[in-house]
């Protein structure tokens, strides 16, 4: 039983980490009033770039860095269109979801050609803390992970402190709540929104790159598999707070890990029932948690400087 529990927890963390990066990307974006539904596309291009650069250079760290950079680059299209041109954020987010996977597919085919061989890379190595990693249940969970998992945890803690305990974080949040009031206080609204898009692009790209540098040795076009959309739900479920998002991501990861293990457990229940679990849980949780508006007040609204 302990083995089953520890395995399911371990799988939960594995599945939650990429989701956590992508959800945190959306948090930074929405806290500045930028609803970005293009996370799926950004993660796809990040996963391709992470894989490709790791494949070329042999360094997963270069892969992750390039995943972040290409995420920023693609998200700057969204940023320019929605911030400078005041275009609709949903429409451009969707455009990114169509454009980025197409570009990823195109680049992959350009580089690897029509060859049908399976291209694989070596994954990032885990860092084990001797002794501590042998503690039952929490040992492998906390002390035998890749550096990216530790980075994700640090990101959650940093974000919580930044938004709640720092002046810069409060200024940042003010842009998402009431940009005009923020502007009267001298906060650079446009600059903050661009910064939000840069952070969003970088974290989404890292989330995608995590999949191909720490999780799977190959790149497949379905590797992101809807995580960009689940991340949107995780931000709402997490009530736009980093701690809440961490819980939401672990919850979604747990649902997915549980449905896989329940399918394998041969309980003589049709497998479709287990496959429903993550979706069913999402609907129920959002119905319960999402009843009250808690997001940034100016979320999704274009900011026009001269407008009264």
């Amino acid at each position: 039983m302990l083995g089953f529990l520890s395995n399911i927890i371990y799988a939960t963390v594995r599945m939650a980490v990429p989701l956590l990066f992508i959800s945190m990307a959306e948090l930074y974006s929405e806290r500045a009033g930028m609803v970005n539904i293009g996370l799926e596309g950004l993660a796809v291009i990040g996963s391709l770039c992470g894989f490709l650069m790791s494949f070329i250079t042999g360094s997963v760290w270069i892969g992750i860095l390039c995943g972040a950079l290409v995420g920023i680059l693609i998200n700057l299209i969204y940023a320019y269109a929605t911030i400078s041109l005041c275009a609709n954020q949903i429409v451009y987010g969707m455009a990114i979801n169509i454009l980025a996977p197409a570009v990823a597919s195109f680049v992959y085919r350009i580089y690897f050609g029509d060859g049908s061989s399976l291209n694989q890379i070596s994954l990032m190595k885990t860092i084990s803390i001797p002794g501590l990693k042998n503690i039952p249940l929490i040992g492998p969970l906390l002390f035998d992970q890749t550096p990216m998992v530790y980075l994700a945890i640090i990101l959650v803690i940093f974000t919580a402190i930044f938004f709640n305990r720092s002046k810069a974080g409060l200024n940042y949040k003010a842009v998402g709540e009431h940009p005009k009031a923020a502007a009267t206080l001298g906060i650079p609204v446009i600059g903050t929104k661009y910064l939000a898009c840069i952070i969003c692009g970088a974290l989404s790209g890292i989330g995608g790159a995590y999949l191909t540098t720490c999780y799977s040795t190959t790149y497949t076009e379905g590797i992101v598999s809807g995580r960009g959309f689940i991340a949107l739900a995780a931000v709402i479920f997490g009530r736009w707070s980093s701690g809440g998002i961490l819980i939401a991501c672990l919850f979604f990861g747990l649902c997915d890990a549980a449905q896989i293990r329940l399918q394998v457990s041969s309980l003589s229940i049709p497998y479709q029932f287990f496959q429903m679990i993550p979706y069913l849980a999402t609907i129920i949780v959002l119905a319960l948690v999402g009843s009250k508006q808690a997001g940034p007040k100016a979320n999704g609204n274009p900011y026009r400087k001269e407008e009264r």
């Binding site: 799988a11 999780y215 497949t220 590797i223 394998v264």
Partner: peptide, 13 residues
């Protein structure tokens, strides 16, 4: 047919 991460988790389980 194209989500390799599902294969990883199924095989582990």
């Amino acid at each position: 047919f194209d989500d390799s991460s599902k294969g990883i988790e199924f095989a582990n389980a």
